[in-house]
Simulated assay, not measured.
Amino acid sequence: MERFRRTRLNSQLRALVRETHVGVNDFIYPLFVRPGEGIKTEVASMPGVFQMSLDEILKECELLQSLGIHSIILFGIPEVKDSVGSDALCDHGIIATAVRAIKRAFPKMFVVTDLCFCEYTDHGHCGILDHVHETVDNDLTLGISAQQALVHARAGADMIAPSGMMDGIITTLRDALDGGGYVNLPIMSYSTKFASGYYGPFRDVAESVPSFGDRSTYQMDPANRREAIRESLVDEAQGADILMVKPALAYLDIIRDIREASSLPLAVYNVSGEYAMLKHAGAAGLIDYNRVMMETMVGFKRAGADIIISYHAKEVAALLS
């Protein structure tokens, strides 16, 4: 009889034979910046997550570095929104301003910029609208996405992360960045991003609820597995440096599928709804919050993720320390 318990009875031996490890360097922490000063507004649906003015963002970066977290992804909430997301196309817009300030104060902080338009448009969709078909015009949006990428690059972003799920986005951005002299700036593609109900709380914090319809005409159908793999492999072929699956918790099979299909680094986005469920269940005493949080992180790594974008990152870092 094989006795599996021989390697389970001693805690040190369990640690020695443990197959999957979670470390603080696995994490990217999302931050939401808005104009103003002295603003740190907690989002009711996401306890512990805040909209912050730039002065508060800088304080947060100092805290993150003290915890050993040296990678962030930035989302912007502009003062004025319009039909094409003009703030995102401006060298003095909220994201470009924030990137410059963070890199001045914390030059070793690795700053990833989310590249999309849903936070910047008055209609809440991810690009220029095609009013005839009530969706986003893919090719017109590619044009302004290239402009946005160059804004981020000039500001000093360390990596660009396009999230709009436009067809051809990686080729477009790679050509624009290379042509602008940013040949070494990596792209982390939201390569397999589903039209998910798990994004609800994010739309509260990013103020990006669509004014009509939803994003199912350009984000992926949650039921499609084969298409999910194809999406990521196409982005790899177009020049993405890192792939991503979003959301993570309900898509562990997709993470494993893509891990087996590609040798590129693979990120997962542990999204707002996943975070909020654990937070509220923990507050209600329904789960051992820290234990379930860490078990979830191990699940992402076991499925094949190299990088975890998560609102839990600070809590994970504190536990690991």
Rank of each mutant, 00 (worst) to 15 (best):
T217H: 13
S262W: 09
Q147D: 13
N138C: 13
Q238C: 08
A267L: 02
T121R: 09
C116N: 09
A146T: 03
R215G: 06
G164W: 00
S163M: 09
E134I: 12
V268I: 10
V271G: 03
G273S: 01
A98M: 02
A317T: 07
F212G: 12
F194L: 03
V268P: 09
D82C: 07
L129Y: 10
T141H: 08
H70Y: 07
L89M: 05
I160V: 10
M294I: 10
I102K: 01
V43P: 15
P162L: 09
D288Y: 14
S232K: 03
G127L: 06
C126V: 07
A146V: 05
D122C: 14
T20H: 14
E315C: 11
I94F: 04
R174H: 07
Q148R: 13
G76N: 01
L278T: 04
S216Y: 10
A240V: 07
N138W: 04
V33K: 03
V99R: 04
P30W: 03
G38F: 08
V43I: 14
L142D: 01
S196Y: 05
K246S: 05
S263L: 11
H131E: 15
A149I: 01
I287K: 05
T7Q: 11
G239H: 00
G164L: 00
V22D: 06
Y251W: 13
R14I: 05
P201S: 12
S310N: 00
I287V: 15
F110Q: 06
D221F: 11
R100C: 09
L252Y: 02
I170M: 05
M159S: 08
F110S: 10
E119W: 01
G197D: 12
L233G: 00
T20S: 14
E236S: 11
P107D: 10
V151N: 06
L249E: 14
Q51M: 10
E19I: 06
H70D: 15
A96G: 13
